[in-house]
Amino acid sequence: MFAIACSQQQYKTYTLTDKAADSLIEIVPERGGIVARWSIQGQEILYLDAERFANPQLSVRGGIPILFPICGNLPDNTYTHNGQQYALKQHGFARDLPWKVTNEDTQNQAAVTLVLESNETTRTVYPFDFQLAFTYQLQGNQLAIRQRITNHSAVAMPFSVGLHPYFLVRDKTQLHFAIPATEYQDQRTKTQHAFTGNFDFEQDEIDAAFRPLSAANASVCDRDRNLQLHLSWDDTYYSTFVFWTQKGKDFYCVEPWTAPRNALNTGDDLISLEPGESLNAWVNMTVTFL
Results as ranks from 00 to 15, higher is better:
1 M>L: 03
8 Q>C: 13
15 T>S: 14
15 T>I: 12
20 A>R: 04
20 A>M: 05
22 D>W: 03
23 S>F: 12
31 R>E: 13
31 R>Q: 12
33 G>K: 00
34 I>F: 08
38 W>F: 14
38 W>K: 09
40 I>W: 11
40 I>N: 00
53 F>H: 13
58 L>Q: 14
61 R>G: 03
61 R>T: 08
65 P>V: 03
68 F>M: 01
69 P>H: 07
77 N>P: 00
82 N>G: 03
86 Y>S: 05
89 K>I: 03
90 Q>W: 03
98 P>C: 10
104 E>N: 02
106 T>W: 00
107 Q>V: 13
108 N>I: 00
111 A>N: 11
116 L>H: 05
116 L>E: 04
117 E>G: 02
127 P>W: 14
128 F>D: 12
141 N>Q: 09
142 Q>F: 09
145 I>P: 04
155 V>S: 14
166 Y>V: 02
167 F>M: 09
169 V>H: 08
170 R>L: 10
171 D>H: 12
173 T>L: 11
174 Q>M: 09
179 I>Q: 08
180 P>M: 08
196 T>Q: 10
206 I>H: 10
209 A>G: 11
211 R>P: 01
212 P>G: 06
225 R>W: 01
227 L>T: 07
228 Q>Y: 00
236 T>L: 05
237 Y>S: 01
238 Y>I: 05
239 S>R: 15
246 Q>D: 06
247 K>S: 13
254 V>Y: 05
256 P>K: 07
279 L>F: 07
281 A>Q: 01
281 A>I: 03
287 V>G: 06
287 V>Q: 10
287 V>L: 14
288 T>P: 06
288 T>W: 02
289 F>K: 15
290 L>H: 15
